[in-house]
Design a protein around this nucleic acid. Structure first.
Lengths: 110, 110
DNA sequence: TTGACGTACTACGTCACGCATAGTACGTTG
DNA sequence: CAACGTACTATGCGTGACGTAGTACGTCAA
């Protein structure tokens, strides 16, 4: 199980990387995160909705109303060119961070 | 340059992994972090002091007064058995998180 | 002698993010 | 007709890294 603290700062990266594949809606994004992490992390509803709003506010995604198979219509999110660029910069930063943290834990048994 | 957001949650891990080698004091820890990260991350004084206090409060490190070559005496920090165990669990969590994030960014150019 | 510099801290406040808690609302299905 | 899954919104909290600021001590150069 991955804690919220451990994943903090990478929710946006996860969401944008999923939206890079194709437009999606909140509920599906949550399911995909659950699946991709092998159930090690389940994003909370509030986290997810506030994250997509944040992304939309920053023009990294745009939203449009789409039909749902059942119930209320859903809001689909689509990555923008800015969002893609942001994703790429975050990925670069992630790779830097990863190599730095790895350098510290060399030799630590776990 | 690694942002504070990217490193957030891993400062304790960095500090404990340094203290695993040998006892040290705040200023030296800051210098080591600067060096190990290749100057990509410089921990701020306030961050560092609040972090070691947090670690001490959680009994993950203990402190003792030691002489300094110049100026005021310094506080040395030493990792405890609990601290070592905590470090190992954090390393395990880091490895999980790392593999999860990597899974998301597969195929993203940076 | 003074003042810049490096070292060694402390106090206080700010901000963002992930989450807890709670509630609304709609449609299908048993 | 109630339970369930889906599709959200509102409010507030805790934590951690940081900004800003100040104290204090010693050395060294001008």
């Amino acid at each position: 199980m991955i804690s919220a603290d451990a994943i903090r700062g990478y929710v946006d990266l996860m969401l944008l990387s999923l939206l890079r594949q194709r437009p999606s809606y909140a509920y599906e994004l949550a399911q995909q995160i659950h699946a991709v992490t092998g159930a090690e992390y389940s994003i909370k509803q509030t986290t997810l909705y506030s994250a997509v709003k944040r992304l939309e506010g920053a023009s990294l995604v745009t939203s449009y109303a789409g039909a749902s198979e059942s119930g209320k219509p859903r809001t689909y999110y689509q990555i923008t060119a800015d969002g893609l660029a942001y994703l790429e910069s975050k990925v670069a930063e992630w790779r830097d961070t990863r190599s730095v943290v790895d350098r510290f834990i060399e030799g630590v048994e776990a």
